[in-house]
Design a protein around this nucleic acid. Structure first.
Lengths: 251, 251
DNA sequence: GTGAACGTTTGACTTGCATCAATTTGGACG
DNA sequence: CGTCCAAATTGATGCAAGTCAAACGTTCAC
């Protein structure tokens, strides 16, 4: 299907076709008028495919681009001097990776493909130049970065105030709504990341993640077999994430 | 001193003079050419003074501006549905508050003056318009927002991986370097925030914060009397923050 | 197919920090 | 100057989640 389109349009291999992309309503094109799409297509580069585990960019190397996930999924993480890893985010198709590295010098994190993944690449300097000309695009960039800050604050909140169960419920619900945005099942999906990554992201031990999954399963809230997950009772999950906010409401 | 300048220049009361501001090398003006300073001054409004505890803006109200701290200090926090508060940041003179609310709709957090505080106000729509015209300013905005994301990731990291001592040492060092940037003593300053705010920010109980302060004091690393703090052994503090990254280095 | 390497799960034990409770300090104000 | 209330400290106790250890599943190379 994607191939059929490629043959019909026959674009240069390095140039992406935002017009034809099924993610255009989630990605940068959503911000701009159809007749400005050309200028976005002028700067975007069709990135290559990455296999599971391959790095898209590395922390501390010169930052040149940010990336939109086209298919597959990506995790970002920062590494401390001591070699500790902290997962800072998971990115799914339509989402933009590398907004924390727009300061121009070097990448603030490492981005790694969690599965076979393709991306579109936006060179930062050209993107900046273009946003100077297209106010709507600029507005959208501010919006995305703003949102990234908010997400990160939410994460900080989750990490500092919530129990293991609350954190995991929140992650499952976040993934669910992101699958839904892409018109996929919000209750039946396969986790792109390993338990280890979940644990790291949520500031937990792997063992704890595993235990919570089985606890949820025993309560009939989810069904999990490896990375395949089914949310059986979304309301119960939502209840878990909010529970902590009420004062000691027993039972 | 500030008054003398105000009388000499006699600007309109609502217009700030970035030219004369002692923070211009920390704040937005640092990004732009002298001859473009006028256009920045055209949009900036001299905000009023806020007393301790006053709100500069409130979460969920329509967001119109972001603010540069001129004097005093500000804390930002988000409130959950359940009424829980999570402190998301502390802002000192020269720093920009509200970058997480550039999405345009409404403020993502509440900003509160920690002491008697004055700010400069930048209306978001005018700022966006201006950044479209001044590439250097736009670049700087991206840079600031990018950095805000990085800070927030660092915080998440601190919250998920570090002990109480490590978190507090990191905060003290962060404050120290921010005082130094303003050419104030990096070892002898007074905390703008209460223990409670520190605890909330770092995801700890107040009691734990208090205990760590006394422990540090007994070890001769700091001297603290109320909000007055003296860092007696900066290297020891740096050691504390890094300690966790080495594998079980006993002692 | 077989083994090696890795990811996941489960159990037993330990611990850092929260929680509860009580006291002390300090600032605001009549 | 004493009163009042909020902030800070200190001590005693309990628990959620980390750590250690071992078994089990899955993937992949050869």
């Amino acid at each position: 299907m994607a191939q059929a389109i490629r043959f019909r349009q026959a674009p240069s291999p390095l140039k992406a076709s935002c017009q034809e992309c099924s993610l255009s309503n989630l990605c940068l094109p959503l911000a701009i008028q159809d007749n400005d799409l050309d200028s976005l297509e002028d700067i975007v580069q069709q990135g290559r495919m990455y296999n599971r585990g391959e790095h898209i960019f590395d922390q501390s190397t010169p930052s040149r681009s940010c990336f939109a996930v086209k298919s597959g999924s990506v995790k970002t993480s920062i590494i401390t001097e001591g070699g500790e890893e902290q997962v800072t985010g998971f990115f799914m198709p339509g989402e933009l990776v590398g907004l924390d590295s727009m300061s121009g010098e070097s990448y603030a994190c490492t981005a790694k493909a969690l599965e076979r993944t393709s991306v579109c690449e936006f060179p930062i300097d050209k993107l900046e130049e273009l946003t100077g000309k297209l106010p709507d695009l600029q507005h959208h960039m501010y919006r995305l970065m703003s949102q990234e800050i908010q997400n990160s604050h939410q994460l900080a909140m989750l990490l500092s105030k919530n129990t293991a169960e609350e954190r995991i419920a929140a992650l499952l619900l976040s993934l669910s709504s992101r699958f839904q945005r892409r018109r996929m099942s919000p209750t039946n999906f396969s986790l792109p990341m390993a338990r280890n990554d979940i644990a790291n992201f949520l500031g937990l031990a792997v063992e704890t993640v595993s235990r919570v999954f089985t606890r949820f399963q025993n309560q009939g809230i989810i069904r999990a077999r490896g990375r395949e997950v089914e949310l059986l009772d979304v309301e119960a999950l939502q209840l878990v994430t909010r529970e902590f906010s009420r004062q000691n409401c027993q039972q």
